Simulated assay, not measured.
Amino acid sequence: MCISAVSVNEVATAADTWSCLCQQFYKVCDKYVAEVDENPKATLESQLFKKGPVMAAVVNRVSLRLGLSLTFQKVEVMYDACRFYKAWNPSSDSAWCAVFTPSDLQVLEDWQDLEKYYTSGYGHAINYEMACPPLQDVIQYFSDMVDGRGGPKGIFYFTHSRAVITMMSRLGLYRDVAPLTHEHMDPDRHWRTSSHGIFATNLAFVLSSCGQDRWWVSVLMSEKVVSLDGCSSDRGCTWDEFLAAYGRYYRCDFDNICQASVQEEEPLSSAANRPEVVWATDVLRVLRTLAWWAGGLFT
């Protein structure tokens, strides 16, 4: 969710086309679709991690624990079931989580973090470069307020986690000094999607008037203030500091940023034909797989 607000008394909706660009820019960015979303090589690091000895050890341990010969795909389904059921009932223990040790779950989390790092994070520059429309929107509406032109008290966008995480990357949040790879997964890393990419994650930009033409910008991730590069305080920025750090994104040449390379061999699929993978679809996929697997697991 992309939010720019000083109050919740009024809610405004932008034009449909601009709202779509702010919410789902990753679906209409041809360069991102070609180089990342539809390119298996873009997630090579997570694939190498999945096929590596650390993940193989997890599969072996779970197999021994259950007395079965399991593949990674079946362990993945169990992991998804563990996460979904725990999300649905946080106060209850999921039976599917019982097959994993804490160290097993950590390895699986590392694999998921690598996947998100290269599809939504700092693994490829286009991931965060394309995320300028929401930030452009924030700067425009905040500028209107600061300059006395007025405007809506609140603007709310509802979207998927990919848009939210790429927006965080555009802001420089949760960036590690060394890139994440299948050989380097720092246990003390900042990039943890289990913290900043969870269900109901939201990103809020708040503009506050401090009187005498003084303005303050705060950014909150899931209702908690985060520090921004270029701010003198870890609680936010003065308006001048915010413009100095992020004002360049007001000129967001989205078409130029997202222009696909002419060397692409395969034509890009049209936006209308791109599959929309939503949370509900993922849940149904997991449950269908579980139902099929449970039917033949102990036969």
Results as ranks from 00 to 15, higher is better:
T181W: 10
D186T: 03
R189C: 01
E183I: 06
W191C: 02
Y174K: 07
I198S: 12
L173F: 01
T181I: 08
D176G: 04
L171D: 13
L180Q: 07
T193E: 07
M185R: 14
N202Y: 05
S194W: 03
D176H: 06
H182I: 07
L180D: 06
H184I: 02
P187T: 14
L180W: 03
S195V: 13
I198A: 13
E183S: 11
G172W: 00
D188T: 14
V177T: 11
S195A: 10
G172F: 01
A200Y: 14
L180G: 04
L203N: 10
R170W: 11
E183G: 13
S194R: 09
D188C: 13
A178Y: 00
A200M: 14
Y174C: 08
R192A: 09
G172N: 05
D186C: 05
L171C: 11
P187V: 13
L180A: 09
W191S: 00
S195C: 05
T201H: 10
R192H: 12
L203C: 12
I198V: 15
L173G: 04
H190D: 10
A178R: 02
H182Y: 13
S194L: 04
Y174S: 04
Y174H: 15
L180C: 09
R175F: 06
V177W: 00
M185N: 14
G197Y: 03
L180T: 02
H182L: 04
L180H: 03
F199S: 08
P187W: 10
S194P: 01
I198H: 04
S195G: 04
E183V: 01
R192N: 13
L171T: 11
